[in-house]
């Protein structure tokens, strides 16, 4: 026997559920449109300001070249100029994340890897000094790769991370080992940071993820640095490896610290 009353009740409940989901969908659509509008106008304006900032700081640097100013002022002005470039690189990264198709129209630039690290070190030198951390560059390299505008961010986030997690008065070493014919390069960044367990190595490369000991430490972070680095390495055919040196673990305020080693490998392919 068919229970029509039961079927009707079920159908009415489904209709109610459908109406509820439709209302939710419309709310989400409206929220999405609102967020997109805000994101569009914010990115547009930030880009405009970033362009103006880099243009004005470029002018300022040029004017200072002709004048006698103290080294500290000159360094500060250069840092402002380079930092404005980092805003641009960061926004270029957002383009890659939100719209990978945008890459088709970007013109790759020749970028010297050593020079990019040198520049990132320059931008971060003030921050490093304030944290009593010294960045030492060892070796050299003339290797150049075809790089997207966001590439500048890669050495920046790696060094920024190293400074951020390093205890005071610990060195950060950036060593460049280039093969005899200049076709292979390994950049090895050695710093000190909260110990990273081997099974967490791939996890911390994901967006928003940090190591267990980094989370326990008082150092705050959004888990973005290594994610950005890994993403950019993927776009530029670079290999990124990270590890803590288990043989050098020691405690700071109950948190295990160890030498943290980042290895970046680049290889020029004949094409």
């Amino acid at each position: 026997m068919v229970r029509y009353d039961k079927i009707l009740r079920k159908s009415a409940a489904q209709a109610d559920r459908f109406a509820e989901l439709s209302a939710k969908y419309e709310t989400l659509q409206a929220d999405y449109a609102k967020i997109k509008r805000a994101l569009d106008s914010t990115l547009h304006e930030v880009r405009r300001f970033s362009g103006e900032l880099s243009s004005y700081s470029e002018h300022l640097n040029k004017q200072l070249e002709a004048q006698h100013v103290d080294a500290a002022t000159r360094e500060l002005c250069e840092t402002i100029f380079y930092t404005s470039g980092m805003i641009s690189s960061r926004l270029a990264f957002t383009d890659l994340e939100l719209n990978p198709a945008a890459v088709r129209l970007q013109v790759p630039l020749r970028a010297g890897i050593y020079k990019k690290f040198e520049k990132a070190g320059h931008v971060l030198s003030l921050k490093a000094r304030l944290r009593h951390v010294a960045i030492q560059m060892k070796g050299s390299s003339f290797m150049e790769i075809e790089a997207l505008p966001s590439f500048e961010l890669l050495p920046f986030v790696l060094l920024d991370n190293a400074i951020k997690y390093s205890p005071s008065y610990q060195p950060i070493t950036v060593r460049f080992d280039e093969s005899a014919h200049g076709t292979q390069l390994e950049v090895c960044i050695t710093s000190t940071g909260p110990y990273l367990d081997p099974n967490e190595r791939s996890i911390v490369l994901e967006r928003g993820k940090r190591g267990r000991n980094a989370e326990k430490s008082p150092i705050t972070g959004d888990g973005l640095g290594l994610y950005l680095a890994q993403f950019l390495c993927g776009y530029h055919d670079l290999r990124l490896r990270i590890a803590s040196d288990q043989s050098g673990i020691y405690d700071i305020d109950g948190i295990p610290y160890a030498p943290f080693i980042v290895r970046l490998n680049a290889e020029l392919t004949s094409s």
Binding site: R47, S50, N99, A101, A102, Q106
Partner: peptide, 28 residues
């Protein structure tokens, strides 16, 4: 453009040869 993050616009830019953002550095 300042809208390179927007897939809608890049789909409409098939006729362009290259793109530059509003804040692209002078080197670029």
């Amino acid at each position: 453009t300042g809208y390179t993050h927007d897939a809608f616009f890049s789909a409409k830019l098939a006729s362009a040869d290259a793109s530059a953002t509003k804040d692209a550095p002078i080197d670029y």
